[in-house]
């Protein structure tokens, strides 16, 4: 079996995202791949990972095969340490108790700004998207990991609308906007793992996924990417990662 056939695009997305988390961290997870990846990390390497959900949950252990259809459903509370109001769990971000925020994305730009509100002109939108939910709060207040599909129309120079702020216009603009803490940390796609340069705050490639070339990543991106001299090649998903992931999502709700 060739490398590419061993797993789907969403499976490698979930697995590489899970690898970014560290035991002992407090992670605020959105629904879908983030929830799945955080739960995967908890099962594989990070039993002490504390997962927060915007519905008002601290420290859940989501049950395999019973993934919640949103982060506001009762399944999110399984084996949690505490449930509280949604405004209060979001305020934990503001106070600083959260190490990592973890979300999906519809459209992202070179500075890590995310758009989930409008395609086209907001005054007369081509498409009205669902909106921020807790995304704006999470990305405003903590360090972010974003897991998303890699397509040219999703990786654009400037997003149509900044729903969830990354580094705004780069350099110091995030802090100057009133967001002194947090910012984009990693972007994970089925093609590569990205970080952001210290100074300019532009997106750069940290590592290529197995079997993916620099050209392939650049061709699927709507702005020019920097590649470090040291751009690494990511280790392929292990059998244990794939098995555990498939155990968590046997119906393939989020890993189609």
């Amino acid at each position: 079996m060739t490398e590419a056939q061993r797993y789907t695009a969403t499976e490698i997305l979930a697995i590489l995202s899970a690898r970014q988390l560290r035991d002992g961290q407090v992670v605020f997870a959105g629904v879908g791949i983030p929830l799945l990846a955080a739960t995967l990390a908890q099962r594989l390497r990070c039993p002490g990972l504390t997962i927060l959900f915007e519905g008002g949950v601290i420290g859940a252990f989501v049950e395999p095969g019973k993934l919640p259809p949103s982060t506001n459903d009762q399944r999110c509370t399984k084996r949690a340490n505490m449930v509280l109001g949604s405004a209060d769990v979001l305020l934990l971000l503001q106070r600083g108790y959260v190490d990592v925020g973890f979300m999906g994305g519809a459209q992202i730009d070179q500075y890590g700004n995310l758009n989930s509100s409008f395609i086209g002109d907001p005054a007369a939108p081509k498409t009205r998207l669902p909106g921020t939910g807790g995304g704006n709060d999470i990305s405003s207040l903590t360090n972010m990991i974003v897991a998303m599909k890699h397509e040219k129309r999703r990786f654009v120079e400037h997003v149509d609308f900044i729903t969830s702020p990354g580094f705004i216009r780069g350099d110091e603009s995030r802090g100057e906007s009133g967001l002194p803490m947090g910012g984009m940390f990693r972007v994970i796609t089925e093609l590569a793992v990205f970080g952001f340069s210290e100074r300019s705050r532009r997106m750069k490639v940290l590592a290529l996924n197995p079997g993916v070339s620099r050209e392939e990543v650049q061709d699927n991106t709507g702005f020019s990417l920097d590649f470090d001299e040291t751009t690494a090649m990511t280790e392929p998903p292990t059998d244990s990662e794939l098995q555990t992931l498939r155990l968590l999502d046997p119906e393939r709700l989020f890993t189609a």
Partner: peptide, 10 residues
Amino acid sequence: PMRAMLGSDV
């Protein structure tokens, strides 16, 4: 007062 939403188009 709150610290989110700042800097965004929201």
